[in-house]
């Protein structure tokens, strides 16, 4: 009986089959209503997909409230146009890993991972960027953090406690493309010691919190930063140390084009 259901499930997934197995978020109980906290449902989805050899986790139109989720080997999150991952405005729903700063999407030592947007089906042959959205609700998250620190319940600095939207460390084969990334409580995207990273087609808008840097990376090898728009309160791009093979082109802010990143 169970096998029957399982094969059905696989058949449903296979309908969308491209190179990798596709999974729809609703199968795991993720709710698109904007009020259900989906952290454990999304995490379970990632765990199952990774343990079955990897695949794409598809989110369609809707707002998916979540705290920290840990991306695992061979899993790509696809945010279709209109799909928004919404960061929960609560200090204790964010975590990092030893040596990895807190983030909404965190990965450490994983390979072949991604968070990507997808072109809407009714728009063809157009160079669309910034589709799916990650909305950090930085102001509210930061308020929660500051309150908890002020009360003495949270024994961290504001910087330690404030999650990035994406925090990857020691990962290989990373794709973060075609998304709109909005209002982080900390920096927006951080890479540390990662290899072969593609960062393209991002609309990054994070100005509610002072000093929110757009893209922060260190010790990376093979970083491609292309066609991104930055509207941030901190530095659009901040590279701290020792990165190799960094390519960049066509990155912009409200003030104009960004000069190429050296290093």
């Amino acid at each position: 009986m169970k096998k029957f259901f399982f094969s059905f499930f696989v058949a449903i997934c296979a309908l969308n089959l491209s190179a990798q197995t596709d999974y729809k978020a609703s199968v795991f109980g993720c709710m698109s209503d904007g009020i259900t906290l989906n952290t454990q449902s999304i995490q379970t989805a990632i765990n199952i997909i990774s343990s079955r050899g990897g695949g794409m986790l598809h989110f369609y139109v809707g707002r998916y409230l979540t705290g920290t989720i840990f991306l695992k080997n061979n899993v790509t999150i696809v945010l279709h146009e209109g799909a928004t991952l919404v960061g929960v405005p609560s200090a204790y729903d964010y975590a990092g890993l030893p040596g990895v700063p807190k983030g909404l999407i965190v990965a450490h030592g994983q390979s072949n991972i991604g968070v990507v947007g997808s072109t809407p089906e009714y728009q063809t042959n157009m160079d669309v960027i910034g589709n799916g959205i990650i909305e950090g609700q930085g102001k509210s998250v930061r308020k929660s953090i500051e309150t908890q620190i002020a009360k003495g319940y949270l024994n961290e600095t504001i910087e330690q406690a404030s999650p990035a939207l994406i925090s990857f460390s020691e990962c290989t084969g990373v794709k973060v493309t075609g998304l709109m990334l909005r209002e982080a409580a900390g920096d927006v995207v951080t890479y540390n010691d990662c290899k072969n990273v593609e960062t393209a087609g991002l609309l990054i808008e994070s100005k509610d919190i002072a000093g929110s840097n757009g893209l922060v990376f260190s010790k990376c090898t093979g970083l491609n930063v292309t066609n991104n728009f930055f509207n941030v309160s901190g530095k659009p791009i901040k590279s701290s140390a020792n990165s190799k093979e960094v390519k960049s082109s066509d990155n912009r802010t409200f003030a104009g084009s960004l000069s190429k990143i050296t290093k």
Partner: peptide, 23 residues
């Protein structure tokens, strides 16, 4: 509630309660 818990019947407070207990 001082730890940020929300008693609205919707928000899942597990992480907040856990932090409060740990504290």
């Amino acid at each position: 509630r001082d730890f940020g818990a929300v008693g609205d019947g919707i928000f899942v407070n597990s992480n907040i309660i856990q932090h409060a207990i740990d504290y």
